[in-house]
Design a binder for these strands. Structure first.
Length: 738
DNA sequence: GGCTTTCCTG
DNA sequence: CAGGAAAGCC
C-alpha cells in the first residue's frame, strides 16, 4: 500500500498543474463595472504620517524625562524591566557588583556584560532570587560552603542575592541619575575604583529591603536554614561585610555624582527653567531620601503623589536643618529659583507644577499600559448609531462608555469601515503586539457616487448618529491632549473624488451597520493591518501615490495635520456602501461556503450588496473562496488518506457526521464561533468529496499530477442555493440570533 | 491580454 | 489569508 500520508509530496507533484478545468464560474459584469470605478480610485497614502511622529515623540519625551514618577509606575508595572530606559548609573553599579562578585568568588557568566543589567535574563534572575532568597537572604550570600548544602545551592543563593542586591542598588542610583551626562561621568569615575565606607544605616536599609522580598519557596529553604543557624551568624557577618563594601562604593559613587552634578549645574545655571528645576529637585529627593536613612521601600511603595510629597518633606528637612551639602555658587538664576523653591509661593508653584507633571505622566503611563496590556476589546462607542446589536453575543464591553478613555479611543480604530476618506486614520488597529494574527481584509474606499446595488438597500441612519470614529476622535483631540500612540494614519487607501470635492464632502453616511458591530463579534476576525499592508496600495496599481490625479496634496496635508481641521472639512460623503471588506464579510463568506464552494462574482455581488465592488474587492472575495476551497480540499485529502491508512476499504465506511473529526476541523475553520448551524447539505457534499478523494487515492489516481481536477469538477456541481438571508448586510446578526 | 484558478509561500 | 507565480480558458 502506498504511503498515503505523503500529502506534501503529492502536493508538490501536482504543482503547477491546473486543476481548475471544469470549475469555471460565470463572470459577471464586474469587469465593466470595475473599469468605471477604477477611474475614481485614489492613490495610496503615506502610512507614516506626521501625526505618528508627533505622537511618538510624546512617548519619547516621556522616556526622556526620566521622571521618578514614570519610573516608579513603570517599575511597578514591570518589575525591573527598565531596559527601555537605559540608565548609565545602573551600569556603574553593575560594574561594581561585578567586581564584588568576582572578588567573592561568585560565578555568574551573565555578569560579564558591563553594560546595562536590565536585560530580560536578569529580570528572570531577579525573580528567581526574589523567590528563593526571601527567608534569610543574608545566608545565601555566604561565600563559604555549607557542609549540608550543595555547592549548587550555595552558588545559586549567592548569585541570586547578589543580583537582588544589585537591582536594589541600581534602583537607588536610578533615583538619582536624572541627568544623563552626569551619570555618564559618574560612570567613568567610578570605574576607576571607588573607595569603600559603610554606614550601619544603609545596612539596616538593605536588610529592611530584603524583608520585602517575595515570600515564596520558603519551605524549601527553611529546612536548610533551621539546620544551620550557627552558620548563619557567620554568614551574616560576611554578608554585612559585603553590604558595607557595596554601600561604601555606593556612597562614593553618590558623592562623585553630586559633585559632578553641582559643577554641571553651576555651569548651566542660566537654564533655570522648570524642567531643570524639577530634575534638580528630584535629584535632591534621591539624595535626601538616601541619606536620611529612610527605607527605600518606604519611598518606592508610595504612590507617585505621595512619593513627591514625601520627598519634598525630606528636602525641606535637609535644606532647613543641615547645610553641609555642597552649595551652589553664584547668586544666579538657579539660586534664585532654588531659593524661591523654599518660599511658600515658590514651593506652591513648584508643587503645583510637579503635581501637574505627575498627573500627566501618570495618565500617559496608564494609557500606555492599558494599550499594551489589554487586548483591543471591541466596544461600541456611543456615537455610533443604535444598531440592533446582539450585545451579549458579541461580547461588547459596555464597561466604559466614556469616550475619553483610552480603550474607547483605541476601539475607534478597530476594523470598522469608515466611508470618509479622512477616516482612513481610524481603520487600523493599534500595532498591538499580541493580536492581529488574522489577515486583514482588503479595504478599498471610494468617494464615488452611490452605487445602486442589488439586494436590500443600505440602512440609513441619522446623520447626527453617524459621526465617524475619526471625527469623534477629533472631538477629543484637543491641543492639550495627545495620543500616546501614533494614530494609524492612512492605513486604508481611499479614493479621491476626482475633481469633485463637493461630492466628497456632501453627503450621506455610508457606514454599514454591519461594519460597526459585527466586526466586534469575535477576536478572530480582527482586522490585520500590518506594515506590509500599510505600505502599499493594494488596489490602485494604476494610481500610484505619486499620481497627481490620485492624491490631493491638500488631502495629504490635512491627513497629516490637525485632526480637528480634518473633521471640519470632511463630513460624511458617499453612499451607505462601504468600500472594503470587513472581518464580518469574511465571516459571512465563510458561512456562505457551507452552501457554495464556487460562487460566481455576480453571485458575490448580490450577496455582498453592502460592499462597493471593484476589481480588488471581487478578487479578494474570490480569493477568499479559493482559500476556503484550498483548506477544504486539503482536509478532504488528508482525511481520505488517513482513512485509507486506518484500513478503510469501502467508501461506505466513510461518512461525515457532526461528531467526526473532519467535520470539526471544517467547522472550526468556517464557523469558528460555532454560532451557525451548518446545513445538512454541506455534510453531504463533504462526504461526497471525501469519498471522491478516497476513491481516487485508492485507485491510485493521485499519481496523476492533476488527479484532483476530476474531484473539483464533481464538487463544483454540488453548490446549493445560498439562503436569501445572506443577501442582507445584516445577515450575520440575523443568522446568529437564531 | 484579461481573467480565473490553483499552487505555493509566508 | 494574502501575494505571487503559473496554468489554462476566452
Amino acid at each position: 500500500m502506498p504511503d498515503h500520508d505523503s500529502t506534501a509530496l503529492l502536493s508538490r507533484q501536482t504543482k503547477r498543474r491546473r486543476v481548475d478545468i471544469g470549475v469555471k464560474r460565470t463572470v459577471g459584469t464586474a469587469s465593466a463595472f470595475f473599469s468605471k470605478e477604477r477611474a475614481t480610485f485614489f492613490g495610496a497614502m503615506n502610512p507614516q504620517g506626521s501625526e505618528q511622529d508627533v505622537e511618538y515623540s510624546v512617548v519619547q519625551h516621556t522616556d526622556g524625562e526620566k521622571s521618578n514618577v514614570l519610573r516608579k509606575l513603570l517599575k511597578r508595572a514591570n518589575s525591573y524591566e527598565d531596559a527601555m530606559m537605559p540608565f548609565p548609573g545602573a551600569t556603574i553599579i553593575s560594574q561594581l557588583l561585578k567586581n564584588n562578585i568576582n572578588k567573592n568568588g561568585g560565578s555568574e557568566p551573565s555578569f560579564q556584560t558591563s553594560g546595562l543589567s536590565s536585560t530580560g535574563s536578569e529580570i528572570h534572575q531577579e525573580d528567581v532570587c526574589s523567590n528563593s532568597s526571601r527567608d534569610s537572604p543574608q545566608e545565601c550570600l555566604s561565600p563559604f560552603g555549607r557542609p549540608n548544602m550543595s555547592q549548587f545551592d550555595m552558588d545559586r543563593l549567592c548569585d541570586e542575592h547578589l543580583r537582588a542586591k544589585r537591582a536594589r542598588v541600581e534602583n537607588i542610583i536610578r533615583g538619582m541619575s536624572h541627568s544623563p551626562n552626569v551619570s555618564l561621568r559618574g560612570n567613568e569615575n567610578d570605574r576607576e575604583g571607588a573607595p569603600r565606607s559603610i554606614s550601619p544605616r544603609e545596612s539596616y536599609r538593605e536588610n529592611k529591603r530584603k524583608q520585602k522580598l517575595p515570600q515564596q519557596q520558603q519551605q524549601s529553604f527553611q529546612q536548610l536554614v533551621s539546620a544551620r543557624k550557627e552558620q548563619k551568624r557567620e554568614e551574616r557577618r560576611q554578608l554585612k561585610q559585603q553590604l558595607e563594601d557595596m554601600q561604601k562604593q555606593l556612597r562614593q559613587l553618590q558623592e562623585k555624582f553630586y559633585q559632578i552634578y553641582d559643577s554641571t549645574d553651576s555651569e548651566n545655571n542660566e537654564d533655570g527653567n522648570l524642567s531643570e528645576d524639577s530634575m534638580h529637585s528630584e535629584i535632591i529627593d534621591a539624595r535626601v531620601h538616601d541619606s536620611v536613612g529612610r527605607s527605600d521601600n518606604e519611598m518606592f511603595d508610595l504612590d507617585p503623589g505621595q512619593f513627591i510629597d514625601r520627598a519634598r518633606a525630606l528636602i525641606r528637612e535637609r535644606e532647613l536643618g543641615s547645610d553641609n551639602r555642597p552649595k551652589r555658587d553664584g547668586p544666579k538664576e538657579k539660586d534664585i529659583l532654588h531659593n524661591s523653591f523654599l518660599h511658600p509661593e515658590g514651593k506652591h508653584l513648584a508643587e503645583t507644577l510637579k503635581q501637574e507633571l505627575n498627573t500627566a505622566m501618570s495618565q500617559i503611563v496608564d494609557t500606555v499600559v492599558k494599550v499594551f496590556s489589554a487586548k483591543p476589546i471591541r466596544q461600541l462607542p456611543q456615537v455610533f448609531p443604535p444598531l440592533q446589536i446582539p450585545q451579549a453575543r458579541f461580547a461588547i464591553s459596555g464597561e466604559n462608555h466614556n469616550f475619553h478613555t483610552t480603550n474607547q479611543r483605541l476601539q475607534c480604530f478597530g476594523d470598522v469601515i469608515i466611508p470618509n476618506p479622512l477616516d482612513t486614520f481610524a481603520n487600523v488597529p493599534m500595532p498591538s503586539s499580541t493580536d492581529q494574527t488574522e489577515a486583514l481584509p482588503l479595504v478599498v474606499r471610494k468617494n464615488s457616487t452611490d452605487q445602486s446595488a442589488p439586494g436590500p438597500p443600505p440602512v440609513s441612519h441619522h446623520p447626527s448618529l453617524h459621526q465617524s470614529p475619526l471625527s469623534a476622535a477629533a472631538s477629543f483631540t484637543s491641543p492639550s491632549f495627545r495620543h500616546p500612540f501614533p494614530l494609524p494614519l492612512m492605513a486604508y487607501p481611499f479614493q479621491n473624488p476626482l475633481g469633485a470635492p463637493s461630492s466628497a464632502f456632501q453627503g450621506k453616511d455610508r457606514t454599514s451597520p454591519e461594519s460597526l458591530d459585527l466586526t466586534r463579534e469575535t477576536t478572530s476576525l480582527r482586522t490585520k493591518m500590518s506594515s506590509h499592508h500599510m505600505n502599499h496600495h493594494p488596489c490602485s496599481p494604476a494610481h500610484p501615490p505619486s499620481s497627481t490625479e490620485g492624491l490631493s496634496l491638500s488631502f495629504i496635508k490635512s491627513e497629516c495635520g490637525d485632526m480637528q481641521d480634518m473633521s471640519d472639512i470632511s463630513p460624511y460623503s458617499g453612499s451607505a456602501m462601504q468600500e472594503g471588506l470587513s472581518p464580518n464579510h469574511l465571516k459571512k463568506a465563510k458561512l456562505m461556503f457551507f452552501y457554495t464552494r464556487y460562487p460566481s462574482s455576480n453571485m458575490l455581488k448580490t450577496y455582498f450588496s453592502d460592499v462597493k465592488f471593484n476589481r480588488c474587492i471581487t478578487s479578494q472575495l474570490i480569493k477568499w473562496f479559493s482559500n476556503f476551497r484550498e483548506f477544504y480540499y486539503i482536509q478532504m485529502e488528508k482525511y481520505a488518506r488517513q482513512a485509507i491508512n486506518d484500513g478503510v476499504t469501502s467508501t461506505e465506511e466513510l461518512s461525515i457526521t457532526r461528531d467526526c473529526e473532519l467535520y470539526r476541523a471544517l467547522n472550526m475553520h468556517y464557523n469558528k464561533a460555532n454560532d451557525f448551524e451548518v446545513p445538512e447539505r454541506f455534510l453531504e457534499v463533504a462526504q461526497i468529496t471525501l469519498r471522491e478523494f478516497f476513491n481516487a487515492i485508492i485507485a491510485g489516481k493521485d499519481v496523476d499530477p492533476s488527479w484532483k481536477k476530476a474531484i473539483y469538477k464533481v464538487i463544483c456541481k454540488l453548490d446549493s442555493e445560498v439562503p436569501d438571508i445572506f443577501r442582507s448586510p445584516n445577515c450575520l446578526q440575523e443568522l446568529l440570533h437564531e
